[in-house]
Amino acid sequence: MTANPILLQKKYSRVIECFARQQEISLDAALDFFYHSQVYQLIRDGVSDMHCMSDAYLAEELKQEYAELGCSDR
């Protein structure tokens, strides 16, 4: 299933904001990380209906990917 591109853009912005707050990083840094992440690729490609997951869930997935890449000091 593919999602409406406009709705996806809104979803992306909410997930990026949530992720930035969680990690206490700038929106620019969160935006850059998001668009280079596996999470973004999965959502964009419609894998497992990731776009249907909650914003908090997707932000948590980003947080895990961020930590795995050693980007977090936490």
Rank of each mutant, 00 (worst) to 15 (best):
R44C: 04
E24Y: 01
E60Q: 10
A56I: 13
L42C: 11
R74N: 14
G70P: 05
Q9N: 11
I6G: 00
Q38Y: 04
Y35D: 06
H51Q: 12
M1F: 09
D45H: 00
M1V: 04
R21I: 13
L7F: 07
E61L: 14
Y40D: 00
V15G: 02
Q64F: 08
V39K: 02
H51I: 01
Y12E: 09
E17C: 03
M1W: 03
I6K: 02
E60P: 00
H51S: 13
I6Y: 07
A59T: 02
D28N: 12
Q41E: 11
H36N: 15
S26T: 15
K63I: 00
V47A: 06
T2S: 08
T2Y: 13
S48M: 11
L8T: 06
R14W: 09
D45L: 03
D28K: 14
I25F: 07
A30L: 07
P5F: 01
S26K: 00
A3E: 12
V47H: 06
Y40W: 10
A29E: 15
R14C: 08
A3V: 07
T2R: 12
S26C: 01
D49L: 12
I16A: 07
Q64R: 15
R21V: 11
D49W: 06
F33C: 01
Y12T: 03
L7I: 10
Q64K: 12
Y35S: 05
Q22A: 11
K63M: 10
Q9L: 11
Q64S: 13
D28A: 12
F19P: 01
R44N: 13
S72D: 15
D28M: 10
F33A: 00
Y40R: 02
Y12S: 03
S48I: 07
Q9C: 02
L8M: 12
A59Q: 06
S48A: 15
